[in-house]
Nucleic acid binder design. Sequence first.
DNA 1: TGTACATCAGTGAACGCGCGTTCACTGATGTAC
DNA 2: TGTACATCAGTGAACGCGCGTTCACTGATGTAC
Lengths: 207, 207
Amino acid sequence: MSQPATADRILDAAEQLFASNGFAETSLRSITSKAEVNLAAVNYHFGSKEALIQAMFSRLLDPFVTNFPQMLAALQGSEDTVDLEGILHLLVDQMTADGRGRHLAISMKLVALAFSQGQERLKAYLQESCADVCQACRQLLIKACPDLPMADVFWRVYFMLGSVVFTLSGAGTLQAIAASDYGVNDELEDIIRKMVPFMAAGLRAHT
Amino acid sequence: MSQPATADRILDAAEQLFASNGFAETSLRSITSKAEVNLAAVNYHFGSKEALIQAMFSRLLDPFVTNFPQMLAALQGSEDTVDLEGILHLLVDQMTADGRGRHLAISMKLVALAFSQGQERLKAYLQESCADVCQACRQLLIKACPDLPMADVFWRVYFMLGSVVFTLSGAGTLQAIAASDYGVNDELEDIIRKMVPFMAAGLRAHT
DNA sequence: TGTACATCAGTGAACGCGCGTTCACTGATGTAC
DNA sequence: TGTACATCAGTGAACGCGCGTTCACTGATGTAC
């Protein structure tokens, strides 16, 4: 019966404004103004600014966290020799699915933001909801790199995560530099694909 | 004649508080309280909160930007075949020089913060003051990887920067996880050194 | 050497602004009898 | 079918709090004559 779109309009505006300005820098007034809803609607639908931020991350991550296990299962079911590039390309495909170009950059900005200036509550929530996914990835990578000590796999997962989050969250700026200094016009998807050989080689490197 | 330490005490407190809480989240009152100086001293010495943030980054980056060229010169003077691992280890040594362990994590947090939630003014300043250093690094890496297209070197520099900034800025949390889940107690310096083979292999990877 | 003035480093109290939040209220839709 | 009540979605105006900033002021040090 056509759910009222107010809450979603608030979340849409919040994503964009938080991503480009930060959490404390973005006022509820600017969000409700962009979403064209009443100021009090935020507290009516979400309860508080902090709860709005959590709800925003839930909407962003829940589909990913839900889809991930079956994606991994499909991958593991096929063979028992694991192809590193195959895993990474699958992750990339997952991220770039259904043409969510701009949205991906926004998501990564929000993740970077949460890590660098989020409150403890938010970080704990993110760590908890990603723990399984991270664990599953790590298992897969350990299998794909049997010669590498587990502690090294651990760190290299974060090295890769850093590359992805940093590059994609700053993609807008970096694309502009690349275009003006090197005349290359890489789309976001091109940049992500360029990461695959870099990360695969990094993972395979001898300690 | 023993310069008054007030301004430096403010900068010290600002570094720590901004790094752990963010710019807008940290009030001048909390900074001056930690520094044990009068609230009005910030505006007396720096003019505004924004100017304080810029001054903090200046103090942080200026020594690095100043030292960097002669460091590179020393490296280039030695031979004309450039050793990739040699460059990276030199950068690592530069970062970990004079036992600035905790300080490095704080610096990286501030850089991550500036990228993800800084105002345009600050980002422009950082980009400008790092442009030469970045350019010099890129030249060196292009020489070290003659088979790689320049545009790829460009992107891979940011992949590496992302690994470094992300991992070091979250080092505290990650070290705790590593210790509890894998029983490894890597110091900050160990983590940075682990990055060298990862990044070198990533740089050498075929596109 | 002494006096007058200038600069410097800091201080305490107040200012006004923008913020997140609250509250009494409205109008539409759903449900019970 | 009609009436009474309940719930839901939203609204407009106000509240008080904490913020960055300002300003008149103080006391110490330096400089000129």
